[in-house]
Write a protein that binds this DNA or RNA. Structure first.
Lengths: 259, 259
DNA sequence: AGAATAGTGTCTTTCAGACACTATTTG
DNA sequence: CAAATAGTGTCTGAAAGACACTATTCT
């Protein structure tokens, strides 16, 4: 009933599929998002989420070839951050599909469906400008203004997903280096949730959640910058879901306390 | 860098975007999924998830018109269930986006991205065959065999989402009629989780979760078919998130208890 | 009568969160 | 020394889950 007869897509309005990435990192205790300045119309010079088309082609025998959306997102992220695909730093980045945005007029030129992705990264170097994105950089969340297309909406959706994921997955470890202290981990929660969890309770809770972190067997070389004892170092554990979860404080944004 | 130059999509391999729907309902205490028999190649006569193309067109002035993916999913669901769009029964159906599946060769004919949706419905009538789907019907989950395309994967993804959503949202009420007993609600959890929660604890828990259900002020006319007192009737409350959540029993499928 | 079910009471264990406190390190 | 921080101890209240029990209604 709704199948284009004979599958001749040229008889139909052409559509395109892109990926857009909400890449988050933490710098100086603040959540930052990777944005690029657009180098062309529409929204020329406006900031936008990094992204691009999902590539498709055919081989000599007419077989379909191309990227999965996941692969396209990983490629775009590598391009925009200037990191080498498959490099250790990129491999520690968590990348997951968020949702697909497909309002008919979200791009004025043609029908474009955007598969949005969410990425969690430890502090990455400032990207070098290149390609058709005039420039790219990490922008603190509270400095984000009007973005191109529907990217504000996509960003908001990604933020809420990120906040929720910290509760029941160990993904906070994707925001810190391979070895980290409990305090560094707590700083991740503070930055993403906008509220610092109680230090003592947080400490005990992280250590009592099986598979969250494992002791790296070493201590920091120095105490905190403003005093305090040295602290133990940990590595990410093998758990993929936290049990019990680390619940957001009730007054943090969008805990969803019913009514 | 990855923008097709000049945005002439005809210079590029054409792509299509469809919606596919994992529509779930409960019949006789068992979870069922809506499937259609394909009326054409590929996968002729194979069962598949209902779905179809997201429609796009242009108006007289060249402006882009068309459906959002949400609208396309709602339309397809109406078509395949044989219900009137906007009818009260359809309006009680919960419909949400699941994920987008876009492996390059998931459809042998051309590059097709499928935006998958999840639908929760109270017991709906058997759909009448019509359109190009040779037939459609509700199939018990344990009778589902190999589906067309990657629809087994999409179905599995939808099931896991459904199980998780029952925990922290009141969506179980979408599976029952407008007025229901606590036992009927418990039967929803039993069917979706594959394990019947403890009746007494479930009862107390549902009533103590704010906004989950509200008293409808009436009782059933008869007790249970095999005896037992009459029970109180409830309606869905206004909560969108349950707090506290109804946790799945630890031995239920995929609780993800971390090691 | 006997079986099944609705709904309540109670106890134990687990966990979240508040608070206090000690030990260690920096400036 | 004063301030800051790591890490632990302890208490309270909320909630999950097990179990028992009463009352009601069906065959």
């Amino acid at each position: 009933m709704s199948t284009p007869a004979g599958y001749d897509p040229r008889a139909y309005e052409p559509v395109a599929v892109t990926v857009d990435i909400v890449a988050l990192t933490i710098r100086d205790g603040e959540l930052h998002v990777l944005l690029v300045e657009r180098g062309e119309e529409p929204f020329l010079k406006r900031l936008a989420l990094p992204g691009g088309f999902v590539r498709t082609s055919r081989n000599a025998r007419g077989g379909i070839r191309g990227e999965t959306p996941d692969e396209a997102a990983a490629r775009e992220l590598a391009e925009e951050t200037g990191l080498v695909p498959g490099s250790p730093r990129l491999r520690r980045v968590h990348l997951e599909q968020l949702a697909t945005f497909g309002a008919p007029r979200r791009d004025p030129r043609m029908r474009v469906f955007s598969v949005a992705y969410l990425a969690f990264a430890a502090d990455l170097p400032d990207p070098v400008a290149g390609g058709d994105a005039a420039s790219a950089g990490w922008v603190p969340l509270d400095k984000v203004r009007r973005l191109a297309f529907d990217h504000n909406e996509i960003l908001a959706y990604g933020l809420e997903r990120a906040r929720a994921k910290l509760e029941y997955t160990p993904l906070a470890t994707s925001f810190v280096g391979p070895e980290f202290t409990i305090s560094e981990l707590r700083a991740v929660y503070a930055a993403v949730w906008g509220k610092d969890p109680h230090a003592g309770n947080f400490h005990r809770k992280v250590l009592s959640t099986p598979g969250f972190v494992v002791d790296a067997g070493a201590m920091t070389q120095r105490g905190g910058a403003r005093g305090g004892p040295r602290s133990r170092l940990y590595r990410a554990g093998r758990a993929t879901l936290l049990h019990p979860a680390l619940l957001r404080p009730a007054d943090a944004p969008a805990r969803g306390r019913s009514r």
